[in-house]
Every structure is written in structure tokens, then in C-alpha cells.
Design a protein around this nucleic acid. Structure first.
Lengths: 309, 309
DNA sequence: CTTCTTAATACCTTAAAGGTATTAAGAAGC
DNA sequence: GCTTCTTAATACCTTTAAGGTATTAAGAAG
């Protein structure tokens, strides 16, 4: 079987005339006659009745014409879909996020991506940092969002955003009435820190910031995630430092306060990680969106609302 | 696009190795390499990542593989279905029957055909003789069942069965108590005749039979169809001659009586008609069944039950 | 019966698929 | 770090089959 023969058959079936069909196909009549004969021979079916006025489709020929149209339709679809997939506009992208990543920049990026590539199926997985790296290496995911990443030989990363840190503090605390809190005042407050695993982590970061500011933090508790941490603030265990985007979580008993007179690094990065050798157009398309997002956001750092979802 | 390339792609995608794939395809490695390159060029998509260990499908390649499998499936299906159609085992056959043709031989033939060719869609149309011939010429039907056919230049016919005629008579008539009625006694009874159109018809036949028996029939009424005719017999308008197969119609007030001492031709044919030049395998397959049916039935003419449905 | 049309046949030309030999490039082993 | 193995890619020739020209065969129209 040969698509050339099918194409020829289609034209002959339409024209009911070998000569005219040959003209349309820009070939001469005898080869076309031969191709049609070969097709009939191969199928072992007479597709046309030859009349002195031209060619007339048999019942089998009528059926075959429909089938041939289906075949060409499917081939066209295959071509288009494959091309789309090659451009990263069709397929599946597995992305890992961390627990509190459902707030802030990540949903905005996901929305932007889905808008531009509506035929890409984005599947989200919630994973910690270590899990993400394992999953990347096993190709279970193509990309992970995370913070405070240490460089790895096979994993590349791309910065998404840098977020200011704010202090979550109990509403009954004397400083809760201040418009903003000087960083050094943190030394007086018991701190709740998270997460307790996957170094370098947010705990290390907090401790280092305090040292830069000239004091040792008063650690009250170490917990696993941001939400638990804020819940403990509400219960009066102490205060905690969180990225500003997490402050959309409003809980009775907790207020978020900006920090003033803070060390330069009183901020935390949000990055995405991916296999260095991964050249899939889907991933690259996603990274393009990430870079676009960051570039657009850097121009808006003055506007405090821009970091909020 | 070219099915050869698709076939090659499939094997390379399975083997993930040009050399092994070439071996399976019984060609050497370089032409296969070239074909794959041409395919990628044509699609403008990279289908494989080349590694020192072989070929690895890209995401687009994975998608394309599925599509290619669909294409080959469809081609296979097209081939099979077209071959079936060519052998008359698939398609649609439009057949005309006359009003009382739903009894007797016709349903048996239709059942036999449907059993042997279950994928043929048989569409029945109820038509009179003239209509059938028009419909045949306009190719709206491929075959018609009818009786008493005059030869036509473009229409062939095939005999299905010859049926004995029986007399339908009112239960109150004095002769209704006889086991069988001598043909000449019909001269005393008013006759209901049908149909009133499309000569040569059953009316002509009845009149001729009476003349052969040496009398002129006493015509009471001419009606359009057998069922009306029998209904009139029940109402006491007179008697009528009908083919034996129609005597399955039992109506209160009507009994069917065999005729004795009747002319040789006291019988009527059931035939099917079709376009002389129609060579469609579907029609020919149907005619084969008809001839088989008739042959089988001719051997059983002694058994009166064999003519009943 | 001739003339027109149609598809089919015979024979040659050309384009493209296939083959052989070789090269380039990366991985594995010493 | 070099050689050796593997792989796919390239260069060039051969063969197959598709396409072209000329002609024929067969049926319809006049």
C-alpha cells in the first residue's frame, strides 16, 4: 500500500475520468492507469467499472473512497499534533510544588502558561525539596518549584522571584500595634522555625539573618511547614518569619508586620529546578514563561501589591 | 508523506536502534538513517534524540508513534472492509417487495442471505411492479420481487418459486365444506380479482385460466391487493384465487381450498428482477442464494409444507 | 462504416530508494 | 589519556519503480 496510490485513487474517484485526473495530478494518463490497476490488484478488488465515458466507482470503490478520506484526515491530524508537540504546544508537563507554593507567584505562572499553551496538560505534584530532586532524576517530573537551592551538577535552576520576609506575630503581642518592626527586636521574641529538614533550608536562613543583625535567635519551636508555623503563632508560641506571599493566609490572632532596619538579605528566593540535559520543548516553553514573568515583575518591585496573588 | 517512512519510523521507535531496525526491515543502515531524517525534515520536528547507545524518542516522537499506529490500523481496516465489499459481504442492498410478499418464500430467502452475509444491510421497500422497474432503472433498488413478469431489454429476472393457486371462499358458501373444489365450479362463484394495474397481472392470469377450463369468470370486483381481496371474501362478495403462500392469512369467514381438475397452469411464479448490467457482488451474492433456495425447494415439491413459512 | 472518445499496452527515461564503504562522535576499558 | 568499541551520519554507486511518449483496443456517436 502506498499513499501515492491512495491520492491518485481519490482524484480519479472524484473526476470519474483517468485523463482529467492525470491532468490534475500533473502526470500523464498511462502511469495513472497503471497505478489504479496496481491498487486494484493489491486490494484484490475492482474499484472502478470502466465505461466508454470514463470510470465509475463500484460499491467497494465507494466504500474505499470514504476510508481513504479517513486515512488522509488521520495523517493530517498526526502531522499537526506532532508538530505542536515538537513546539511544546501539546503534551503533558509534570511540575512539583511545595506546600505553601500554592500561593503567590506559582499560580500566576501556571495560569500564564496554560493561557498560552492550552493544549498542554499540566500535572501538579506536591513534594519537598529532596523528593523533587529524586523525581527530577527519575524523570517523574520535569520541573520543581522551591526555595534556597544548593547547586547540583545535573540540576539547573531558574530564579522566579525574590520575596521580602515578613514577621507573623500574635495580635496580643505588644509590638503588634507597631506599623513595622525593627529587625533587631526579633531577638526578644521566641521564634517558630520551619521546615526541619532538607538543608539548606529556611531555618538556616533565619539563623543567619539574625547573626548578620548581631544577635542569636530565641528558638521556640521547629515545625515542618509554614501553615503549622503560623497556627502556632496564633496560639501564642511566638512569632515566625515567612515570605510575604504566604501572608495571604489570614488567621485570627495573627498579624503580619514588615521588618525595617533589616539585613540586606531579609528576603528569600523562589526558583524552579529542572534537569540540565532536558531539552524538551515543553520544559523550555515553560522556562520562557518563568523568565518573562520574572522580568515583568522586577520592574514592579515598588508596587507592594504586585507580589500578591 | 509516505507510508514507507512511517513503517520505518515504527520499527526504529520500537528498537530504539537504527542498525537493529535496518536488519528487521531487511535493508542496510544508511538508507534507514536517511528515511528517518527525511521524515523529521518533512514534519519539521525532531522525533528522536540521538545518543551514543541508540535512538531515543522525543515527546513529539512518542505522540507520533501513537498516531502512526492509528494510521496503520485505519489502513488495515480500509483494506479489509473494501475487500469484503468487493466480495459482496459488506454494504447495503435495497430490495423491493410487493404487499403480500412478506409471506412465503421471500422472508426465508432474506433470512438465508442475512445469515450468510451478516454485515450486509438489507433495506426493504414495498413497491408495485411498475414502481419496482422505475426504481431499478434509477438504481434506487438493486432487486425486486414480483410475479408474472414480462421480459424487458434491460431487466433480467430469476425464478424464485412456482406456487399453486388456492381458492379463498366464504365459510358460508355451500362448497366450503368440500375437501377440494373442482376448477370448473369457479364459474358459478362471483370472483374478486387483484391487482387492478401493472399488466400482465394476476387478473389476466385468472381470466386466462378460466378460459383454458372452458368458461368465462364471473367477475364481482377488482381490487388493489391480496389482503383487501381476502377481506371482501370474508364479507361475502365472492371468492378469489390466491397463491398458496398467502393462505397463511387466516381471517374469520374465509377458508382456503385446493383446486382439483385444474388447468396445468393453475400456479403463479415468484421471480426477482434486477438490472441486466448490474455486476455488483452484493446482487450476485443475493442471486446465488435465490438459485440455491429454488434448487433446494424443487426437490421438496412433494411436501406441501415446504412452501409455507 | 467511419470518427470520436475512452482506457490500456509497449517501451523508454528519470527520479528516488537501496547498497557498500567510510567517517564522525561519543562511551567504555585499559 | 589513549585506544577500541559502539553508534549514527556521509559519500557515492546500483537498482527499482514511477513517469513520459507513442500507440493500440474498444465502445459510442454520427
Amino acid at each position: 500500500m502506498d499513499l501515492r496510490k491512495l491520492k491518485y485513487f481519490k482524484v480519479v474517484a472524484d473526476e470519474k475520468h483517468i485523463g482529467r485526473a492525470a491532468k490534475i495530478l500533473h502526470i500523464s494518463q498511462p502511469p495513472l492507469t497503471r497505478q489504479i490497476h496496481q491498487l486494484e490488484e493489491e486490494l484484490e478488488v475492482k474499484l472502478f467499472n470502466r465505461t466508454p465515458k470514463g470510470m465509475d466507482l463500484t460499491d467497494a470503490g465507494i466504500l474505499f473512497r470514504e476510508e481513504v478520506n479517513n486515512i488522509f484526515g488521520l495523517i493530517e491530524q498526526a502531522t499537526e499534533r506532532t508538530q505542536k508537540a515538537g513546539q511544546g504546544r501539546l503534551g503533558r508537563l509534570d511540575i512539583a510544588i511545595f506546600g505553601s507554593g500554592i500561593m503567590g507567584d506559582i499560580p500566576k505562572i501556571l495560569l500564564a502558561f496554560k493561557e498560552r499553551y492550552p493544549e498542554v496538560n499540566v500535572v501538579l505534584h506536591t513534594m519537598g525539596k529532596g523528593e523533587q530532586i529524586n523525581a527530577l532524576r527519575q524523570k517523574r517530573i520535569s520541573l520543581g518549584f522551591n526555595r534556597l537551592l544548593a547547586p547540583l551538577p545535573d540540576i539547573d535552576s531558574e530564579l522566579v522571584a525574590i520575596e521580602e520576609l515578613v514577621l507573623a506575630i500574635n495580635t496580643n503581642h505588644p509590638m503588634a500595634s507597631l506599623p513595622a518592626i525593627p529587625f533587631t527586636k526579633i531577638s526578644d521574641i521566641p521564634l517558630i522555625l520551619f521546615p526541619a529538614s532538607n538543608r539548606p533550608n529556611f531555618i538556616d536562613k533565619t539563623i543567619r539573618l539574625c547573626q548578620l543583625a548581631g544577635f542569636t535567635p530565641n528558638i521556640s519551636q521547629e515545625v515542618g511547614d509554614a501553615v503549622t508555623s503560623i497556627a502556632l503563632v496564633a496560639s501564642g508560641f511566638g512569632a515566625c518569619l515567612i515570605p510575604k506571599s504566604a501572608s495571604v493566609l489570614t488567621i485570627p490572632g495573627v498579624v503580619y508586620k514588615s521588618l525595617i532596619e533589616a539585613p540586606d538579605e531579609t528576603e528569600v528566593d523562589l526558583s524552579c529546578i529542572f534537569r540540565k540535559e532536558d531539552t524538551s520543548p515543553l520544559l523550555r516553553a515553560f522556562l520562557d514563561i518563568v523568565i518573562e514573568y520574572r522580568t515583568a515583575n522586577e520592574k514592579l518591585t515598588d508596587d507592594p501589591e504586585s507580589n500578591f496573588f
